[in-house]
Design a protein around this nucleic acid. Sequence first.
RNA 1: GCCAACUUAGCUCAGCUGGUAGAGCAUUUCAUUCGUAAUGAAAGGGCCGUCGGUUCGAAUCCGAUAGUUGGCUCCA
Length: 647
Amino acid sequence: MDQQINITLPDGAVRQYPKGTSALDVAKSISEGLARKVLAAEVNGQVWDATRPIDGDATLKLLTWDDSGGKNTFWHSSAHLMAEAIESMYPGVKFWVGPPLDNGFYYDVDLGDRSVSEDDLRKLEVKMAELAKQNNTYVRKEIPKTEAVNYFAEKGDEYKLDLLQGLEDGNITFYTQGGFTDLCRGPHIPSTGFIKAVKLTNIAGAYWKGDERNKQLTRFYGVTFPSQKQLDEYLQMLEEAKKRDHRKLGKELGIFVFDDDVGPGLPLWMPNGTVVIEELEKLAKETEQEAGYKRVVTPHIAKESMYLTSGHLPYYQDSMYPPMELEGVKYYLKSMNCPHHHKIFAAEPRSYKDLPLRLAEYGTCYRYEQSGELFGLMRVRCLHMNDAHIYCTKEQFAQEFRAVNDMYQKYFKIFGIEKYVMRLSLHDPAKLGQKYINEPELWLETEEMVRQVLKESGTPYVEVPDEGAFYGPKIDVQIWSAIGREFTLATNQVDFAQGRRFKLEFTTQENSAETPLIIHRAPLGTHERFIGFLLEHYAGKFPAWIAPLQVKILPISDKFMDYAKSVLDKLKKLDIRAEIDDRNEKIGKKIRDTELMKVPYMLVVGEKEASEGKVSIRRQGKGDLGARGVDEFAAEIVAEIRERRSE
RNA sequence: GCCAACUUAGCUCAGCUGGUAGAGCAUUUCAUUCGUAAUGAAAGGGCCGUCGGUUCGAAUCCGAUAGUUGGCUCCA
């Protein structure tokens, strides 16, 4: 007689099924429609094949496209399908790994001497569609390690053999669909027929195991969907994202340009971009003034000896512009401001009464990033950092670090930044003395201090090992560009190493000498990255306070030019950035062009306005708001700007 | 730096398998003086990224180089 098992569903209902029933069977028992959508299942909290027999009592959640587990399974299975197509097109190809991503999947393969073109991707798409249509089932098989080793030894796939080395005998599984078998822990969707739409997005080189000393494999990127409609929507969404790409907007709005003769990664800031820069600096200076910072200014270059003292040179020489040598002395362009600030700390005897000492500067730095790493404004070779260094005692540290954290929150609120992740970057004990200063206790101690501040302030964060700076742990604010690439927007770092290297000291209350702790912080990151981010964040529609042009006055015809000028004069006296559109164009054209330039306010002036001393207000993206007195409008926009309102 | 792709007027792009360049927008001029997302007409503007090769002939084919882009590595 069949043994019965109890299956607990998410709503708490417990149903009985014969032992060996599968999630798919359960779905079928509920409804056929549901069964058609089930991609995988969560069995006792683990994601499983929907077709895998369940042998004991279990909690069960059916996973569909709407669950991340279902999506991941779908894309992982798609990677196998792509591998099958690749193998049929390139016999003898060797495979590394093919995981799902946030938006799709990839597979790393060794094609030998062969290369791939875009055309080949189209052919692969066709092949995949054909294989998907065969609706082959994904068959799971548990096998002993020796058998697995034999299989791939015979196939001559050294990458899979390398993977097998790290696995224990007894839990090795193979998955086969159609003519393709892969070493894989699964799970997979029931069959290839679920994959209805395929798009291979690009080809890239990727170093084996992510190490540039290793051989470069070919990475195929793709994305698939359970329906053509979803693929179309996805592609549509990508097109939309491209519209808010900061590189496109930066050009359209006259924010910045690159020039071949100036050099890669060296942006030229146009007048409009410079306004944004200056507004950001104004905000930073006000905020820092209020928080007790003192401003300093330091040169863009320094002698080699300083970077030897700081310890930066051996770590970062490759990413600094090469030195210029004058009278036998080498000078480097600075790639960070810290050492200069440390020298200011060291310039005068310091007492505990002087601490915390907070030195701030919008510092210009140069970093020779590898050519392939450059990316619009997000990764450049000349950058302006919202930098400051806080020198404090151990006792003051937590409070200072918290204050910096508060400053971040203040800025996030002003800019309406909600989609970000705080990342606490820690050291890796195995790399002490190489990547990290060899101070094991100080590492643990400061990491704990930072963790406490984050916990107390209730800031959500993730901890990541082996991401710290060489001189201490740090908190990074991670954001994503329009096209989905991840960047550090801002950083807040602890430094317990450089103080000692620079022999920085202060006199304590007990009249002894002590080395201060240092906090490096850049809440607004660099102008380059921050403005790149803001362009995408606002889709080019800057709030009035930071918009390059705040008001455009649009006369109906040049008969009203004198009145337009009188309005302009009034606004200019109030430091409002305003211009007149004095072109001989119809009002509709003027409005269209001004809307496209994303100027927050348009003032239409004609006969009616001139005679009544009014302006007709049009808000960007919101249409006509009606006529108001000039002074009334001016007072309102001045308040909006002063409060840095985002609407 | 590595893998792959791209580079035609200020911008966005067209130019089939080689026969020495085209559109729209922008610009300038003229007409029009207009009421909430494109007034009309005319004109100017490009040694097709750069250098070299193949060819009677190259924007088009080949090579090199620069820049950009998608990834990898990296990111103080």
